[in-house]
């Protein structure tokens, strides 16, 4: 009898140790350490706790070639609701967790990785809040960085070349620069349309939305989703790949409800008006960002298109996006160039 209760106690304390701290997600102040949330059973190895589910997006935002691992946490018994073409309306107490890292060597991922930061979006009572935790040298804990941090790091890319980057952990305000929609902080990725793909959960390979339905995270969705394509998959048309890339990289800000709405350049997947997509559109308040070019997109003339010029640049007064990038995304540049040339 005594033994059983002791065992129960141990089991209980272990489970509670591995359970996400629901209270902490809602608290006004952020804890100093990432591990305090208990999102991971093993912080260093990033093994998620019970109820913390990994997910992937069909196309992902370019962040200086860093790799990203994403998880969603929805408190037990609660549900997110589907809104077409928008991010799910997650219930209070939810968390979106994203760890940024570089592999030591892209050609051989088993050589390990260097964790940079883990960004959190926490759905509090009043709305979403964003915060980032930067990983320490030992890679066993991540510490809150409200004012951001600069980390110089390097990795070997898939061609075997040494690459280095001045990686910026964003400050709290910079989080809002991208995650702002109608003046409120909003997630970018987890729209139903971006999740509509197969994911290899260890126990099964299954469409992510189906999994979320099975887990009762969401109700059944019965509508067409405007699913984008994986921009890296060249079995899709150039147009589809480009629009998917622009959507996930630019469309959260360049949308009528986003931070760049004053530009009139709208790049989200649902935009269909040529001028607002940048075709023969004159710049508004671009300054030297124009690079001496007359239009955002000059059909057939990639090297005279402001959009491409600003994607190539790494000058802070010129480059797009304005933050979160210090390197040029060569592969995407090639695709956009081909696209404009083909017009």
């Amino acid at each position: 009898m005594k033994k059983t209760s002791l065992l129960l106690l141990i089991v209980f304390s272990i489970t509670s140790l591995y359970a996400v701290d629901n209270e902490l997600i809602l608290e006004e102040k952020f804890p100093k350490k990432l591990s305090d949330f208990h999102f991971f059973k093993d912080t260093h190895a990033q093994i998620p706790s019970k109820g913390v589910l990994p997910y992937e997006l069909i196309s992902s935002l370019f962040s200086d070639y860093s790799y990203k691992q994403r998880w969603v946490y929805i408190p037990e018994g609660k549900k997110a609701s589907f809104i077409k073409d928008k991010v799910f309306d997650f219930p209070v107490g939810s968390a979106l967790i994203k760890t940024f890292y570089y592999p030591i060597d892209e050609r051989n991922l088993s050589l390990g990785k260097k964790l940079m930061e883990t960004r959190l979006l926490l759905r509090k009572q009043e709305g979403w809040e964003a915060v980032s935790y930067a990983w320490n040298e030992n890679q066993d804990e991540a510490i809150i960085k409200k004012a951001g941090k600069t980390i110089l790091t390097d990795w070997i890319d898939f061609k075997g070349e040494n690459r280095s980057v001045r990686y910026r952990v964003p400050n709290k305000n910079q989080c809002k620069e991208c995650h702002s929609n109608n003046d409120a902080v909003m997630p970018i990725g987890p729209k139903a349309r971006n999740l509509n793909k197969i994911y290899d959960y260890q126990d099964e390979s299954i469409n992510q939305l189906t999994k979320w339905m099975k887990l009762d995270y969401i109700d059944n969705i019965q509508t067409d989703l405007n699913t984008p394509v994986d921009w890296e998959d060249d079995s899709h048309s150039l147009e589809e790949r480009v629009r998917s890339y622009l959507d996930i990289n630019c469309g959260h800000c360049h949308i009528s409800t986003g931070g760049a709405n004053s530009t009139g350049l709208y790049l989200d997947l649902t935009e269909s008006r040529p001028t607002h997509l940048g075709i023969n559109k004159k710049p508004v308040a671009t300054g030297r960002g124009s690079g001496g070019h007359e239009f955002s997109i000059s059909p057939g003339k990639a090297d005279e298109s402001i959009l491409l010029y600003r994607m190539i640049s790494t000058d802070p007064g010129v480059m797009m996006p304005e933050s979160g990038r210090s390197l040029t995304h060569t592969e995407a540049i090639q695709m956009i160039e081909d696209w404009i040339s083909s017009m």
Binding site: K282, P283, V284, T286, G287, R288, G289, S290, G291, G292, H293, E294, F295, I306
Partner: peptide, 10 residues
């Protein structure tokens, strides 16, 4: 002052 705006701007 001579106009020194980058081209493309109004």
């Amino acid at each position: 002052t001579d106009n020194f705006a980058p081209e493309g701007n109004i």
